[in-house]
C-alpha cells in the first residue's frame, strides 16, 4: 500500500520498526498492526490535501524562537529519590538488562 506522500507501511516495514524499537511482535500482531498503522498514515495524509504548497511545515504550535536559559546550576534531585524510581539498582547506578546489537 502506498500513501499519497509515497509512504508505504507494509509488514516488513513494521517488522523493521519493531526491531529498532526493541519490541517483539508475533506474525499475527505484525499483520494486525501494519493494517492499523497504515490506516493512521492515510488519515494523516489527508492533511496534505488541504495544505497548500505555500504552507511551511511546522514543528511547534507557538511562533516562538530563541527560548533559552542562563548557564547556571540549580539543585539536582537527591540520588536516593532518583534510584527509588529504578527497576533495579547496583553500585548507586541503574541496573539494566544487556542490550544486544549495540556497542
Amino acid at each position: 500500500m502506498t500513501s499519497e506522500t509515497g509512504n508505504t507501511l507494509d509488514v516488513a516495514a513494521v517488522a523493521r520498526l519493531a526491531e529498532l524499537a526493541r519490541i517483539s511482535l508475533s506474525d499475527e500482531e505484525l499483520q494486525r498492526y501494519s493494517g492499523q498503522l497504515d490506516q493512521i498514515l492515510h488519515s494523516v495524509d489527508k492533511v496534505g490535501e488541504v495544505a497548500a504548497d505555500d504552507v511551511v511545515p511546522m514543528s511547534h504550535p507557538q511562533p516562538l524562537v530563541n527560548v533559552t536559559r542562563p548557564d547556571v546550576n540549580k539543585p539536582c534531585v537527591d540520588r536516593e529519590e532518583v534510584l527509588r524510581q529504578a527497576p533495579a539498582v547496583e553500585d548507586d547506578r541503574f541496573r539494566v538488562p544487556q542490550i544486544l546489537g549495540e556497542e
Binding site: N73, K74, C76, V77, D91, D92, R93, F94
Partner: peptide, 17 residues
C-alpha cells in the same frame, strides 16, 4: 537542564527530571 557538568562526581548525583 541546570544540572552541573563536572567530571568525576559520585554516580547519579548530577541528574534531574
Amino acid at each position: 537542564c541546570a544540572c552541573p557538568t563536572e567530571f568525576g562526581a559520585e554516580p547519579n548525583t548530577q541528574v534531574c527530571p
